[in-house]
Every structure is written in C-alpha cells, then in structure tokens.
C-alpha cells in the first residue's frame, strides 16, 4: 500500500533517518519546513520513491532551482492537499 510521508525534520534529526528507513518503493515523501534543507546535501534517497518539496518552505530558506536535485517535484499547498488524498495512508513525522 503506497504511503505519503510528511517529513518536516532536518536531515540530522533522528526522525529523518527513521522516515527513510520506513519508506518503500512506490511511496512518496513530501518535504516541508526544515525537511527541505536535506535537498542540497546530496543524501541517498530510497529507490523508487517520489520526492516532493513545498515551494514556500524552499523559498523561505533560500533554496532556488540551482540548489535542488533534478528529481524533486516542487509543489504548493494545493498539491500537498491532493497528495494526502491520493495515497491510502499518510505518515506524519
């Protein structure tokens, strides 16, 4: 069953690693708040997982297109709402 993970922690928070460990192929991760700061760090994202990032949180933290890996989907709150409804289960970290 595909899941959406709402991840708002910085990459060195214990929950960030826990989230990646609980993510399976077919799942999605939506990065919000400080979660978006993981994008320019070049960490290994789990395979087969779609990564979204909230544009307002990227913008606030000075992360422009040049800082982002090419596979990231930048979304607004409207799309975040759609995402939470398009998977059967949402896990909030």
């Amino acid at each position: 069953m595909p899941q959406l993970h709402l991840l708002n922690k910085v990459a060195d928070h214990p929950r960030f690693t826990q989230c990646l460990n609980q993510t399976h192929a077919g799942d999605s991760i939506a990065l919000t708040e400080s979660g978006v700061l993981a994008l320019p760090t070049g960490i290994d994202w789990p395979e087969g997982v779609v990564i979204y990032a909230l544009s307002a949180d990227l913008e606030a933290r000075g992360l422009g297109p040049l800082e982002l890996p090419p596979f990231v989907h930048v979304i607004g709150y409207e799309q975040l709402v759609d995402l939470t409804l398009s998977t059967d289960k949402v896990v909030c970290w």
């Binding site: 919000t32 709150y77 409207e78 709402v81 409804l85």
Partner: peptide
C-alpha cells in the same frame, strides 16, 4: 515551531479545493 502556520496554509488550501 512552524506547525501552526503550515497547518493553516494546508487547511486554507483544503477548503479552497472544496474539502
């Protein structure tokens, strides 16, 4: 924390979408 703002932006978007 940013939680109340993120929640408010989310709630506003949900209601705009008819939810």
């Amino acid at each position: 924390s940013q939680a109340p703002q993120t929640a408010l932006n989310f709630a506003e978007a949900a209601i705009r979408a008819g939810h």
